[in-house]
């Protein structure tokens, strides 16, 4: 399974944590598409805690975290 963690406004109408079967998704972009999240709404995309791009591949056991533009200090 691939674990998808959603944060801030991306949670609205989607929930906090979702699990997807890995065989249906080859990269992060295909997951965004499934979630109906435009890539432009995602400011930070983490795969297993490392900053990544939508084109980066995903595999079984990955944890993907998605954040809109946010900041603080």
């Amino acid at each position: 399974m691939i674990e998808i963690r959603l944060f801030a406004t991306l949670r609205e109408n989607r929930g906090k944590i979702l699990f997807f079967e890995p065989e249906n998704f080859r990269d992060a972009d295909s997951i965004l598409h499934e979630l109906n999240i435009p890539a432009s709404d995602v400011a930070i995309l983490l795969i297993n805690g490392m900053h990544s791009q939508p084109r980066d591949s995903v595999k079984d056991g990955d944890v993907i975290a998605l954040f809109p533009p946010v900041g603080g200090g």
Binding site: R5, A8, V70, G72
Partner: peptide, 14 residues
């Protein structure tokens, strides 16, 4: 958007 909506604590999860 980010700071007005969630404040600085939005960083916790990131």
């Amino acid at each position: 958007q980010g700071l007005p909506t969630y404040g600085t604590a939005v960083l916790v999860n990131i």
